[in-house]
Design a protein around this nucleic acid. Structure first.
Lengths: 100, 100
DNA sequence: TTTACATATCGACTTTTCCCGATATTCCTA
DNA sequence: TAGGAATATCGGGAAAAGTCGATATGTAAA
């Protein structure tokens, strides 16, 4: 169950759009961070560094993206890895074509 | 030239989403208003009544939607008719599939 | 089991958005 | 060309979003 409005609000912020874009191709967006591995996505710290925002802000933004269904997270040890939830993007794309 | 961020901001409001939806099928969304004709879209007053917002707010919202490229307007006499700009919706849909 | 680190949450402040009433502009008609 | 109707713009108060620093929570390693 997707909430259009919540998705659009989540997408109404430059930094959050950037983050989603970086997560499209983690290896090229976060070079030299292979040490963390990318199987589960990218961890908060890496994103924070690249975004140039505080840790709390990035954590908050990732929650917003997750609540909207645009990303999903996996906890591995002390790290939380985030990756895109492509399904939602597909649903949204179709929604815009037919529903909105 | 579409500005993603501007589009998403325009879509981040319940009333504006409603308006876009009403404009999908003017005849069924605005019954009994055939007197105005629908060739050029729907005029501000009709939308205002249905939205239950003030005239100034609706006018403002329509400007926001227009700046984002989601609607286009035609002035006919003292009326300004608004209609959807379907092209932008198609572009946006594809953008979400491939770019964002 | 204490410590150190990664992330999440909280409280506060600033900026933006929402939405209104009042006023201005545009255009038609008498 | 004066008046009236439709729309646009302006100024402002309230609510929401953006963003931070400080603190709490969870997890791993010493």
């Amino acid at each position: 169950m997707v909430d259009q409005l919540e998705i659009f609000k989540a997408l109404s912020n430059k930094s959050r759009l950037d983050i989603l874009n970086w997560l499209k191709e983690p290896q090229s967006s976060f070079p030299g961070q292979e040490v963390y591995g990318f199987e589960h996505g990218v961890c908060v710290g890496q994103i924070q560094q690249k975004a140039g925002l505080t840790q709390s802000t990035v954590s908050e933004y990732l929650s917003i993206l997750q609540r909207a269904g645009l990303v999903k997270s996996t906890r591995v040890g002390q790290w939380t890895y985030y990756q895109r939830n492509e399904e939602t993007f597909q649903v949204l794309s179709r929604l815009i074509q037919s529903e909105i």
